[in-house]
Design a protein around this nucleic acid. Structure first.
Lengths: 215, 215
DNA sequence: GTCTATATTCTGATAGAC
DNA sequence: GTCTATCAGAATATAGAC
């Protein structure tokens, strides 16, 4: 307790501003956040924001960059691990992302919104993501389909389905909680349940042979 | 051709403004859109915006309301149709939403963002949505689980999974296209494929018995 | 490094002519 | 109904004292 309190007090002004900015930007986006909001949230003077980060836009890009890194961090390694099989990769991926988003629930919508409005802003950082299509993971999947372990399914559908099952409960939480009339506590339990259920569902979808059934 | 052209010319100023506002608001959100942007996009004078809609906020709320209605329109009827079974309901729902979002790709992210930032702004309109939990559809699902046709699964997971599979390819399209390196044309084909595949996947997930497997 | 006061630009809205 | 010109307030950024 004392430690955490101390840590908060020990934060440099620069850190305070970044923390406040991250909170507000990820929640409301660039345009909806005023520099005064950030200053107030951080408990500092407005002028200090420009002193440390030159401009609102520069601060935003910094936060953006860091959030994006957080988003893709670990993907490359997990996707290219030669020592784990498909099932293990899926399980690891699902778990680490659900943990990440449980801690930062606004992160997915923020990234997706930004990527939608500025699709080319991340071409540099997106290398890690683009590499996915050439990753060990995708190769393993394709191999398994060739060998008949899994029926054919385009990588697009596979990745879309996996990401959607992980991400949607976070970006749609207000709607889902309202519709199903559950408490915050129950919601969090559901999210935890999904760590084990999503891998099972993904395998079930893979095996469903949907590609041939629709022809 | 002539007809469509004529229609565009025949649009009243009020309609022009609404169309421009819908396009920009759904794409960038309230704060990021300037009234001058709307006026330019609509090809009209800035003053006319206030003449017709009084203020930016009133115009936004109008667009919001209409978009939300578009989003929930038809749900209530489809969910409460006594003459269709579970499978038919899922198929209809998936198809009509994929068609809707194909036409308005920015709609899902817009609604989800708004609902996240102003969870209570739609309590009135959300009745239609809230009614889902008491709908014939949900009753049919629960019935099927009781009778052993389907294994047990919480409504939260069922709805979350169904919505996610429909919605995510639209809100994550830039990322997905980049990762899987497909063209816009291929992307649209994938989306169309999903109309038939999602119902199959949903059934496969239902039957996977994930709930018992995780215990 | 931090603050107060202020400059500057942007933005929503309106007045008044046509 | 539509336009030009303009106002009032908001929001970003900086100057200069401490």
């Amino acid at each position: 307790m004392a430690k955490q309190l101390k840590k908060k007090i020990d934060q440099t002004t620069e850190e305070k501003i970044k923390i406040a900015a991250r909170k507000l930007f990820t929640r409301k986006g660039f345009a909806a956040v005023k520099t005064r909001d950030i200053a107030e949230e951080a408990g500092i003077n407005l002028a200090l924001l420009n002193y440390y980060f030159r401009s609102k836009e520069k601060l935003f890009k910094l936060i953006m960059e860091e959030s994006f890194l957080q988003f893709v961090k670990g993907i490359a390694e997990q996707f290219n691990d030669e020592n784990t099989n498909i099932d293990e990769k899926i399980e690891k991926l699902v778990e680490s992302y659900i943990d990440l988003f449980s801690q930062y629930p606004d992160l997915p919508l923020f990234i997706l919104s930004e990527l939608r409005e500025h699709p080319d802003a991340f071409s540099s950082r997106l290398d890690a993501v683009t590499g996915i299509s050439r990753s060990v993971f995708v190769k393993q999947i394709r191999e398994a389909m060739k060998n008949g372990v899994y029926p054919e399914m385009h990588t697009f559908h596979f990745l879309a389905n996996m990401m959607s099952l992980i991400v949607f409960p976070f970006i749609g939480s207000p709607m889902l909680m309202k519709i199903t009339d559950i408490s915050v506590k129950q919601y969090q339990e559901m999210i935890q349940e999904r760590k084990k259920m999503i891998p099972i569902w993904i395998k079930a979808m893979l095996k469903s042979n949907a590609y041939k059934l629709i022809k």
